[in-house]
């Protein structure tokens, strides 16, 4: 953008506007709460944004009204929106892409907005409308994820449609993860990151490992274990061995085994007497994978062969027999 552009007068405020539109994206509920906090996120000060909102009569308006205003604003050229679709701020990108998408592919956007979920056999909510498979569906998928009125379960089903859509789907997922309020959706986003490019997967996993919700931390441990470059986060997994939650400790132990993180062998030993059977099981198996000689396990196998958990006892007997 340059100051000589016909839309220059709009450009700078527009960025702020787009940020503002995207700002409350992680809300579980519909609608936007417009406040000055957005000024901390973008390059436009709150004073500018507020002037803009006042000028458009949009103060306190919901997302849809803001978006529709931009879609209908003939003074906002498509070229500029296209340029903003690659803006450095991801919120600007997704909102500009949505505005542009509503202009160019309204039927696709409407179809994605209207699609009803189908229940997988587990009860999981999946979105299987053909529109989600369209190559240009990503902005609509993101818009529904961020601004739809769906439950967390449905939003998780929406989110998984981001996988593989665009080279930067992983980094976009991390951005969303960082601000997502629903633990259920954060778990879904972390599951998706198993297949993302390395940087995004590890960035997301790091976020997940620091999450306040144990189910998220456990999913983050698994994501690290599944990823080819998961070894980069071995130290974080080692920390997770001391997590308060047994699921997290168990998944951390398992991932350390999967990653063949030999340096974790000693740290896994306390897990052999963990009160949670899953932790004992995964610690035992991980150590056996990291230390095939069984040296570290010898003192423990006698007790573990009598473990009250049949899986632990069976594995211990096999290792003992070996």
């Amino acid at each position: 953008m340059t100051s000589s552009s016909p839309s220059a007068a709009l450009s700078l405020p527009l960025v702020g506007m787009l940020i503002l539109v995207a700002a409350p994206v992680m809300a579980d509920t519909q609608g936007l709460a417009v406040d000055g906090t957005v000024s901390n996120h973008g390059e436009v000060g709150s004073t500018t944004i507020e002037r803009l909102l006042t000028a458009h009569g949009l103060r306190g308006a919901p997302y849809k009204a803001l978006r529709d205003t931009l879609v209908a604003d003939a003074s906002l050229p498509g070229e500029e929106l296209a340029a903003l679709s690659s803006h450095e701020d991801w919120r600007v990108r997704v909102t500009a892409s949505a505005v542009l998408g509503w202009r160019t592919s309204p039927q696709l956007f409407q179809a994605i907005q209207d699609a009803t979920p189908v229940q997988a056999r587990s009860g999981r909510q999946d979105l299987r409308h053909e529109a989600f498979s369209q190559p240009n569906s990503r902005p609509a998928v993101v818009e529904r994820l961020l601004h739809g009125s769906d439950s967390s379960a449905v939003r998780s089903g929406v989110a998984v449609n981001l996988v593989g859509k665009g080279d930067d789907w992983g980094s976009l997922t991390v951005h969303i993860l960082a601000e997502e309020r629903s633990a259920e959706v954060r778990v879904a986003l972390l599951w998706m990151l198993r297949g993302a490019e390395a940087q995004a997967a590890m960035d997301g996993a790091q976020l997940g490992l620091m999450d306040t919700d144990a189910t998220v931390r456990a999913q983050a441990c698994r994501t690290v274990g599944y990823h080819p470059l998961g070894a980069e986060l071995v130290s974080e997994l080692l920390n997770a061995l001391d997590d308060d939650d047994g699921r997290v400790r168990a998944d951390a132990a398992r991932s350390l085994g999967w990653l063949r993180a030999e340096e974790a062998s000693d740290a896994l030993v306390p897990g052999l007497v963990d009160p949670v059977p899953e932790v004992r099981l995964h610690s035992l198996r991980a150590i056996s994978r990291l230390d095939p000689s069984g040296y570290r396990l010898v003192p423990w196998l006698g007790t573990l062969m009598d473990d009250q958990d049949s899986r632990v006892a069976r594995l211990a007997r096999r290792l003992h027999d070996q």
Partner: peptide, 11 residues
Amino acid sequence: EEAFNCGGYVA
């Protein structure tokens, strides 16, 4: 494999 959105359980 680990199923999507299923707490680590498999399908």
